[in-house]
Each structure stands twice: as C-alpha cells, then as structure tokens.
Design a protein around this nucleic acid. Sequence first.
RNA 1: GCCCCUAUAGCUCAGGGGAUAGAGCGUCGCUCUCCGGAGGCGAAAGCGCAGGUUCGAAUCCUGCUAGGGGCGCCA
Length: 552
Amino acid sequence: MTPEALSAVLVDILRRLQADGFLGAGELPTEVVVERPKNREHGDWATNLALQFAGTFGLKPRELAEKVSELLLAAEGVTKVDIAGPGFINVTVSAGAAGEMAKTIVELGSVFGTGTALAGQKLNLEFVSANPTGPIHLGGTRWAAVGDSLARILQAQGAEVTREYYFNDHGAQIDRFARSLLAAAKGEETPEDGYAGAYIDQIAKQVVDGTAVDVLNLPEDEAQEAFRAAGVELMFQEIRESLHEFGVDFDVYFHENSLYESGAVEKAIERLKAAGHMFEQDGALWLRTTTFGDDRDRVVLKSDGDAAYIAGDLAYYLDKRSRGFDRCIYMLGADHHGYVPRMMAMCAAFGDEPGVNLEILIGQMVNLVRDGEPVRMSKRAGTVVTMEDLVELVGVDAARYALVRSSINSSLDVDLSVLEKKTNDNPVFYVQYAHARTRQVAVNAASLGVERTEFAPELLDHPSEGELLAKLVEFPRVMAHAALEREPHRVARHLEEVAGSYHRWYDNCRVTPISGGEVEAVHRTRLWLNEATSIVLRNGLEVLGVSAPERM
RNA sequence: GCCCCUAUAGCUCAGGGGAUAGAGCGUCGCUCUCCGGAGGCGAAAGCGCAGGUUCGAAUCCUGCUAGGGGCGCCA
C-alpha cells in the first residue's frame, strides 16, 4: 500500500463522515499527510489529519481520530490502527499489502521514481558558466555536479530541460587573458591583473604552434587579438572536455559575444527604454532597477560607451524567453548573490514575474581544507584544485557524489588530506556497495535455481522487510520533492537510507536457502524485493550521475 | 553600515511544525556454520545564546553572538 493510496482512503473516510453528519459543514482536504513514523513500533504509516482538521469541525483531535480509526480498520490491507499522543493515527498494514509494492516496483523498472510534477514545463537551467580564462575550479565543479543532477531530476518529473552554459567571451577579462597569453608566449612577466599558471604557458604555446603566421612578430594589438581568438577557443575546448569527462554535457553553450554581434543587446536596451525604465545620468545609461526593489540603479552603458556586464544579461534573458522557456533557472555562486536583486528587477522590467519566469539558485562556496585547517586557494601555493584534479584524485563517482549530497545552502569543506589518501570513507561506496550486493545476490539466486516465478507478498513479514519496503516506497516522493525544491541532495540522502535498510535486511533474510535447503516460496518472493531494491538504487544513482556497479 | 548563507555528535553533513533529533567517518565493545564483513548489532557523544508564535519548534518570527560570502560606470 502506498502512502498516496492510504491518503485517498482517509479522504474518502472523511467524506463519508461528513455525509453521515458526523462532520458538519466545512471544506474537506483532497489529500492528507501520510508519513512513515520515525519509530517503527508506531506502525507503518502515520497521519496527523485529526490534529489538522478537528478544529475545522469543532471537534477534539482524539474524537475525530477515534471515528476515523473505526472506519479505517475496515479498509483492505489495514491490520491495526492506533491513536497516539494528541491524536496521531498510526496505521499498520498487512505484510501482504506492504509487500505488494516489491512487485510493482519491479514491473515499473526504470520508470519507478519518475512522475509528472513538472509535466509540460519548459525549463532552461544555466549552471557553471565559468569564465574561459582558466580551468574549472572546485566551486564550478560543485555546480556541475549539482546542476546536472538537478536537470536529470527535473526531467524525471516530466519537465523539458535545456542545460545551458553562458560563455563570457566578451569584455575586459578576456583582454586580460589575451595579454597574459601574449606575455607568456614572449617569455615576459605576467601583466598586472593578468592570469598565471602552467595552463597559460601551455595554451600560449598551443596558439603559437597552431597559427600559420608568425604571431609573435605581429603588431601588439593584432597579436593580442590573435591570442584572444585562438586562446579562448582552446580554453573553451578544454572546459568542455573536462565537463564531458565529468559526465556533464550541455545542450547549449551560449556565447556572450554573439549577443553583441547580433544586435540583441541594443534591442533589449531599446525595449527597456520604450517601457520607460532607462535614464541617462553622468554620461551613462542606467536601468532604474530601484523601481523593482533593487537598492540602487544600475549602469547598462558606461560613460565611455562600453556595455556594462548586465547589458549582456538583459539580452540573454530575452533570448532565453524568446526560445520558449517558461522558466529560466540560474545557478550562481554565493559571491554573486548581490546580483540577484538587479536580475529580478530586470525580469520585472520586461514585464515578467520574478521568481517564476526567472529563478536564481545561490550555492555556497566550496572551501579547501587540509588536516582540518582551512587552505586559501592560491595558484602560487599550488593549492588550486580543478575539476580535473578532483577527478584524478577520487574518480568521477566519488567526486560527483560528495559534491551533490549536501544542500547548496551550506558551504562545503573538501579536505585535501582525505582526497590524497584515496580512502574509502566516502558514502558513495556505501550506496554503490549495496547495489553491487543486490546484483550478486541475484546472480547467486539464479545459479541456485531461485527465480521470480511466484510472488507471495504476505511472506515478506520480517521487520527488516517492512522497513526496507517503506524506504523503497518513499522514493518517488523524494524524487518529486527534490525536483520541486531544486534539492538534488535529497535523493542521495535517501539512497543512503535505502542502502542501510537493505544491508540490515540482507543480514536477516536470505534469498537463497542455506546449503542443502529447498528453494521455497519465501526465497522466490524475496528475490522480488532484492530486485526492487536494485531498481531504486540504480534509478537514484542514475539521476546523481553516479554509476551503479554490478560488482566493486 | 546594509544584504545573502550558515551555526545540530570528536569530524563532514542530513533533518518539508510533530512522537525517543539521524547517517557516514572517528572512538570503544560484539558479530563470519553457507547469498560479498566495503556489512550488521550495541555503547559514549549534539540542536550557538535569549526571547516570541504554537497543543507541539532543530524547523517559523525577533534580537544577540560567531563564521563564510557580497555590497564598482569590474566581470
């Protein structure tokens, strides 16, 4: 029995009580909260409906609870109903009713855990968007892991999702990057405000080697342009490759520069002018973001005529909307949170609804730690950790899992000393091991002639089976919740619980008979449960971008 | 000064207003007669402080303290 089914039964009971006159006039809920009690001894499911709705009908919670309990006890599959505390209703279902889910899950297979919570929505999810002036660092790596998993989770709820990377190949930083490359190629010192590091030397060399003309002897500005064009392209390729190795492939790599070349920036500005949201002051053109709650207005075109960074964002947002995205989700690092009010103001200035058409997720920083002591990331000290470094140290699975299993609202500490030891104290192994175990149990079962030829759910009556089933049944709700709240870490945490329940079950209930024993119905039935667990772990790991190994 | 995030076990982190606050790692015991011990069982150990709302607060609100981040005609 699923919690949804139980909820429906309870709603029906309330309706009957109202029809009978036990409940007076009042609005009935269309669904009620059915939860798994923390304490297993309280039953399989619990509902607080009596506490929630008794007041509506002028009853005491316990009065309502008792009446509901009476009727609930008659429902199919329900074996016991208790009232606890102020009015909780605890429900125990028969082993058969609970066990039935094992078969349902197996039959649903990869579909189990998907839903329709976001059906029909066309979402644009922009994440990483790291500048093409260097490799992706630890912070960007976190957004890659979280963003990609979120995309998968949103898709599993029926949303049409486009993964997008905004490529800032316009502006002063790119000029600095180009000057740095040129200086490196000439063997000169890194310019002030420039970029340094082994990768700069490498790319500089690649540009020199890959260009037909003698770039080093071109006039300064032409040489810089040559290094800009070729260097950005090389950096771009490198970033794309790193992401691909990490299991993250974007549908769209959007080039900021294209917005200027196509005239989209001017059009966006014209539109805001026409709407009366722009004004000139001190020789610059401003967007009056204070109209929409920002704490100060923002310059769009600087007094020297150059565009400020936000100019590109205006055009970019309009571009996304014109491509049919109902909702544009941006993932930004905490160092850019101050950008949120002006973005929301921009959204409103275009006549859209902030928080709906434009949604911004702020992720906190990743800190580097060594032996418990914070380490400042510094190129000079050699403590910069890139996506590639992390993958090399711990592998994609462990890296992605570690980065996705925490809420983005919390800053994350990554301990270098732990990574360097390549220890196995990462929870990903706990989950992966459970999956591998389900597969090996299946292999073993097959070799001993245990098959899923029959299914007698009432035999799944061990407490550890009830616990495991309850965890498996919760999976679709966890997935839906993760999608709606944009919180992929919930899936990882749930898998850890499933793995724990599975391990406990494994220690208590054998799928294959001990040597010499007969294969019985209970073994064949347990094989269904083993398979159901396998499916949940696999489906969950899939959306996290982590492999589900057959063996480890 | 203003804005955002955070404060939960020795460490890293979970905890959609509900019952006895959880996991991994670490520490200390126990557990292999047969499906993988990368497992299981048990123990010690915790909600920063002070108010408020509520039948009920780790969760919501206010203040304080501490930590991280941000407040450009930079990107």
